[in-house]
């Protein structure tokens, strides 16, 4: 049952990541992979909220499986982030590659902390 919830969450999260990336690339012409940045930050914020809600007893573990492991897990990605960073560095955009890593880590962690803090305030 839990496994099914993870699968349903992932079946939504992965296409959402793809569509976000498509939309961002259609709107902005830039060297920075903002699409991947965006899904990772939003995924971290949402997972912080969900994990905080479950820890506070406001939601059960099924929500964690559906929205956390499934949706947020598939929405966010480390492989694309790493590959895009490598491609930036290889094509002569080393500073942007370094900035991409720093910005993703900073914003992603900030989002996770913010999500957890909001969850503790609301449900704690």
């Amino acid at each position: 049952m839990t496994w099914l919830l993870v699968m349903i969450g992932a079946a939504v999260g992965a296409p959402l990541r793809y569509l976000t990336d498509q939309q961002v690339r259609a709107r902005y012409t830039t060297v920075i992979p903002w699409g991947t940045f965006l899904v990772n930050v939003v995924g971290s914020l949402l997972l912080g909220l969900v994990t905080g809600a479950v820890a506070a007893g406001a939601a059960d573990s099924r929500l964690q499986a559906l929205l956390g492991t499934g949706l947020c897990g598939a929405l966010s990605t480390y492989s694309t982030f790493s590959y895009e960073t490598l491609r930036l560095a290889e094509t002569g955009h080393r500073r942007i590659a370094a900035a991409n890593v720093a910005a993703t880590l900073l914003a992603g962690l900030g989002a996770a902390f913010a999500g957890a803090a909001i969850a503790r305030t609301v449900w704690g």
């Binding site: 992965a14 995924g43 971290s44 949402l46 997972l47 492989s79 993703t104």
Partner: peptide, 9 residues
């Protein structure tokens, strides 16, 4: 691979 890896976790 995108679904396997995760940044949020």
């Amino acid at each position: 691979l995108g679904g396997f890896t995760t940044f949020s976790t």
